[in-house]
Design a protein around this nucleic acid. Sequence first.
DNA 1: CATGGCTGCCC
DNA 2: ATTCTGC
DNA 3: GCAGAATGGGCAGCCATG
Length: 405
Amino acid sequence: DKLVYLALGELRPPFDRLEFNLADKLIVRALGVGWEEYQRVGDLGELAEKITNHKFSNSQMTVSEVYEQLVRIAKDSGSGSQERKVRGVATLIKQMDPISAKYIVRMVAGKLRLGFSDKTVIDALSYLENGNKEYSEMLDRAYQKRPDVGVLAQMVKEWGAEKAAEKIDVVIGTPIVPALAQRLKTPREMIAKMGRVYVEKKWDGTRVQIHFSRGQVRTFTRNLDESSAMFPELTKIADQVNADEVILDSEAVGYDPKTGKLVPFQLTITRKRKHGVVEAQSSVPLRFFVFDIMYLDGKSLIHLPLQKRREILVKTVSKGDVLVVDEHIETDDPDVLREYHKKQLEAGLEGALVKQIDGEYMPGRTGFNWVKFKESEDSRAKLADTIDAVIMGYYLGKGKRSDFT
DNA sequence: CATGGCTGCCC
DNA sequence: ATTCTGC
DNA sequence: GCAGAATGGGCAGCCATG
C-alpha cells in the first residue's frame, strides 16, 4: 500500500489526505543551496538531483523507511515544526541517490507529475495477477465502492484479484465514487436512450456525500476530499435520520436567512472555507437536497434500482430544516420532460436531472444512467471569453522556460 | 499589516 | 464545469 | 463514443514582499 501511495505522489488517499506544508523556500533551505541557484535551475527536483550527484550515498533505505520518514515530516506541526521539517527533508535527501532525491523532493513540494493515476494502479494490480488488463474492470468496480488504492493493493496481494474484488464493499467513512450525469441536448434523445424516466430538479450548489452515524458525521466532495469541517449544521441532523448509519448523496445550496430564497452558486461556494465557518453558517445557511441513499445500517444499497432506493430514502429521512427530500416526476413523454425542464429554469434552477428508473447507483459517468438537462449552450455556459490586450511588460523565463526569452 | 502572485478545489 | 484529441 | 488531458470562472487561503 505504501508503494502505491508513493507512486501517486501521495501518502494517503484523498479523503484522508496528509499535506507536507513545505513551500519552495523551505525546500531550498533543506537542500542547503542559495535561492539564486534555484532560480537558475527552475525545478526543485532537478536541483536536488544535482546536489546529491557527487556525494552518492550507498545507504539502503527501504520503501517503508522512506514512507515512515515522509509521514513523520508531514505530521509535524506547531512551534518549531518548520525547522524540524527542513531538517527532516535534508536528512532524508542525504541518504538518497540523485534520482530518488529528485522524485522525493518533487513529491514533498507537491509537484510530482508522473502521468500516473489511480486507474494506472488498478491496471498494474491486474498485471500483477496475470500479466494483462483482464482484471482491471473487476478491480475498477471494487475501487468505485471503496476508492482507496492502498487498501486495494493490500487485498490483491493477500487474496488475489478475484477474491479481493469480491470482498471489497462500501464502508461508512470512505467515500463512494459519486455518480455523475451525462449531457444530452433534447428530451427526445433522453427518452429514446432511457425509456421511462425519473426526473428531478438540478440544484446549483455543491455536491455533498454524507456519511452519518450516531455520534459522527463526515462529508466528502465530488472529488473524494473530506469536507466535514465546512458543514456544522450536519451535527444536528440526528432527529431527521431514522437509522444508525447511512450514506446519502446530496446537493447543498445556500439560502438567504431573511427571505428563505436560494442563493447563486458563487455565494454558496463561499461556505467552502477554513476560517470563520460558524459566521458563514449564519450568513449563508445551507439546505441539503438529498437525492439518493447508498448505504443503510451495514448494508450497501448501490445495486438496488433507483425506485427502491428512493422508497428507502423517503422512509429514512424525515422532514426538517437541514435535510430535504424533494419531489420528482416520472414520465416517458418528451413533451412532459421539456415542460418540466422549462418550469425549473423559470424557477431559477439549473435545469433537470433525468435518471433511468430502475438504474443502480452507478459511480462515475457510466453510460446513460443519469443525464443532465440544462439550459441550451448558446445562451449560457460558454467556455471561451476573449479580451483585447496590450503587452505592457514581461518576466524572463526561468529553468526550462529560459529559452522563451 | 496590506497587497499581489499563486494554488487548490468547487463548478 | 466544458472542450479537445487520440484511439 | 469514450477516456483522459487540457482548458475556463471564481472562491478562499497561503506565502513572499515591501
